[in-house]
Design a protein around this nucleic acid. Structure first.
Lengths: 198, 198
DNA sequence: GAATTATTTTAATCTACATTAAAATTTTTG
DNA sequence: CAAAAATTTTAATGTAGATTAAAATAATTC
């Protein structure tokens, strides 16, 4: 009955469920994690999860929606601060990566989108496409303002987003590595975008 | 009884099985593809697959070994041709990508490594680590010969390999897109490696 | 603090595949 | 072409793990 549904105990607990699920999916694989694994991680028994999600498919779906939310939020904050396209791109990457390897994490890697039921799959794909489009738009602004060299924005976007999407596959919470990622990735992924001096 | 076991009908058919499985896993997700799906794709019935693999776990394992083989082959060919570290890196990427989007494909995306049984998982992880090490070695040679700017080779490697590994997630055989990937990715992923002129 | 609502549990199904067994067919070989 | 080996099929089994039902406990509310 909380005024703000996002502060309700229910939604807080569901968030914990989603994070636990993301953790398990990333570490044990999708088929390798049972609802029991997720539940036990929270000191619960498996049927308790059904109080928070309709079924396993929806659990995955919500993990992916949450992953998309984190990405969009990083994107919006990065764009809001303005600057050149290159600066926005670099800032978006920093924000997104900081969230992924920080408190927001773990973020579920989107390996099982095709296993989602059609409506859910379409919704996640749509979010994903939108995110890509937004990144491509940043690249285009960068090309227009001269901060980014002319390039195939579609493929450049695919390349950069691939790097990001793959992070949860090999990063599992090591704090010192988290710092390296935040420090290096935005730089590595955008250094090639700037026009050459020569 | 063929002299060369690689030319035997058996191993040819098994290769077809592995490609069909990779295709299904990439498109339908791991949990979304049944052995029936894979078998039907080859005009077979599911139990027939058991003539080629011990079980589904081994099917996945072999898909991943095959994926690793393709990567290693590209790496070896690229290094064999010599040149600067930067040239080797770019060439490796071109070779690997050409294989992935070309006749060797589809290559299975390694989403379910954690679901493999321990021995298989360790073997695949070892192949994967080795591949990464080899790429980092190229980067180090490039730094030594001046073709690549000083950088964190570990993170740079992670970034580049992530892009590559993610390709099968969004590329599904569109021929014209294949050309774009081959044309753009090696360039995009290595442009930032060269030292700046300024 | 009794009644209501929210949350979790125990115990019981249910089912989609993976897997096995045995038989049938096809291919190879001498 | 007959026998042996290789490949695939049909038919049957098994099981882990998702899901449901009903009951128990804990938290809220009035």
């Amino acid at each position: 009955m909380a005024r703000n549904p996002d502060e309700t105990r229910f939604s807080q607990q569901r968030d914990r469920v989603l994070k636990a699920a993301a953790h398990c999916f990333n570490r044990k694989g999708y088929s390798g994690t049972s609802l029991k694994d997720v539940a036990n991680m929270l000191g619960l028994t498996d049927p308790a999860l059904y109080y928070y999600v309709r079924n396993k498919e929806e659990l995955v779906f919500l993990c992916y929606v949450r992953a998309a939310d984190v990405g969009r939020d990083a994107m919006e904050r990065a764009i809001a601060e303005g600057g050149t396209g290159l600066e926005q791109a670099r800032r978006y990457l920093r924000f997104h990566i900081e969230s992924m390897v920080g408190d927001e994490g773990p973020i579920a890697i989107m390996s099982e989108i095709p296993s989602l039921k059609p409506e859910h799959r379409d919704e996640v794909l749509e979010l994903s496409r939108l995110h890509s489009k937004n990144f491509e738009a940043i690249l285009e602004r960068g090309i227009a303002d001269g901060s980014i060299t002319a390039c195939d924005v579609r493929m450049t976007g695919n390349a950069v987003m691939g790097s990001i999407n793959w992070i949860p596959k090999w990063f599992h919470g090591d704090a010192s590595m988290a710092d390296s990622i935040v420090a290096e990735f935005p730089e590595v992924l955008t250094r090639g975008l700037a026009p050459r001096a020569d």
